[in-house]
C-alpha cells in the first residue's frame, strides 16, 4: 500500500491451485514454454510485417516509425487471418487412434 505508483510491480502469478492436464506436470510446463514461444514468433512476425509495410510505403524504417505505425482495418483483417492460420498450423494434432483411416486429423478444419 505504501509503494509509490511509479514503483508498483503487478503480480504475474495467480493465487489458487494450478491444474495439471498431462500425466507428467513437466509437459504442462513445456506447453507454457511452447505457447509463449509461439506468441513470441507471432510478435516478431508482426514486427517484420510492419517493417515491410513501411518499406512499401517508402517510409524510412526507424524504431520510432515502427512504434508509430497504426494498422488500417484491412491490414488488421489480413493479420488476423494470418494469426488464425498460423495457430492452426502450429497446434496440429496427430490423428486419434479411434479415427477411421482417411478421416481428417483431429483439429484440422476447426
Amino acid at each position: 500500500m505504501s509503494k509509490a505508483p511509479t514503483e508498483v510491480s503487478l503480480p504475474r502469478t495467480t493465487r489458487g491451485k494450478r491444474p495439471v492436464f498431462f500425466d507428467d506436470p513437466a509437459i504442462d510446463q513445456m506447453m507454457t514454454f511452447l505457447i509463449e514461444l509461439t506468441t513470441e514468433v507471432a510478435v516478431l512476425r508482426e514486427r517484420l510485417d510492419t517493417v515491410e509495410r513501411l518499406l512499401d510505403a517508402g517510409v524510412p524504417v526507424t524504431r520510432e516509425a515502427i512504434e508509430a505505425y497504426q494498422p488500417q482495418a484491412a491490414v488488421d483483417a489480413e493479420r488476423n487471418a494470418w494469426r488464425d492460420a498460423y495457430l492452426k498450423r502450429v497446434f496440429r494434432m496427430h490423428p486419434s487412434a479411434n479415427a477411421q483411416a482417411g478421416d481428417p486429423p483431429q483439429g484440422s478444419g476447426v
Binding site: T39, V43, R79, D84
Partner: peptide
C-alpha cells in the same frame, strides 16, 4: 502499449478464440 505489446495482445485474443 508498445508495437510489440499490441502484437502480443492481438495474438493472445486469437489464441483464446482458437
Amino acid at each position: 502499449p508498445t508495437h510489440d505489446e499490441r502484437a502480443r495482445q492481438s495474438f493472445v485474443s486469437m489464441l483464446r478464440k482458437h
